[in-house]
Amino acid sequence: MHIPDGFISAPVAAVGCVVAGGSVAYAVKATKKKMGEKQIPLMGVLAAFIFAAQMLNFPIAGGTSGHFVGAALAAILLGPWRGILIMTCVLVVQCLIFQDGGLFALGVNILNMGIIASFVAYYIYRGSALFGEGRKRKLIGGGLAAWFSVVIASVACAFELAISGTVPLKIALPVMAGIHALIGIGEGLITAAVLNLIMATRADLLELQKA
């Protein structure tokens, strides 16, 4: 879902940069207020964690493999603003080192996989608290949150490509959403498994987003 340069038009890319810049600036302020100086090493190490976790592949059908994205996990464990900050750093490094996602398109990529994915995941996970407080609820809520974060980010990606005139929306939308609905299943199951482990071993880390 990392959009390279050239696939989105200049106005869309520029709007993406402005929105991403503003949100990241706010995210820096919001996390600084909560964590102070500790923000710097902790966000840095956790961004490196997401990066490392993305290198663990798992097999999907037919010899292809997928990898974990992690935006949902970061947002669920640490809250949406810290999630945005971490995903932004991951995307910047992926762009500058692996050319995964374009430079001018970086704003749009941060918007999709950082901002949209974090907020969708966080609010679905929190919203699932309305249906009870048990362990099962948290796992299902976390899994659904991860699935929706992947699918809705891909829907946003389809809209951006369509507005740029690269692909027609009526086909881009079902294709992007369809592919990512499948990818999202892996993401959802892994996120639930991670939450399950953390609940069993360090349940205190699940309360970080409130701190």
């Binding site: 090493p41 902790l42 482990l197």
Partner: peptide, 27 residues
Amino acid sequence: RLRQLKTLGNMIGTLFIRSYERGESIY
């Protein structure tokens, strides 16, 4: 496949806990 995903989830979870603790000791 489900079991593989669960193992992967456990690995990522362990990695998260270790990273978080590492972040705290770095600070």
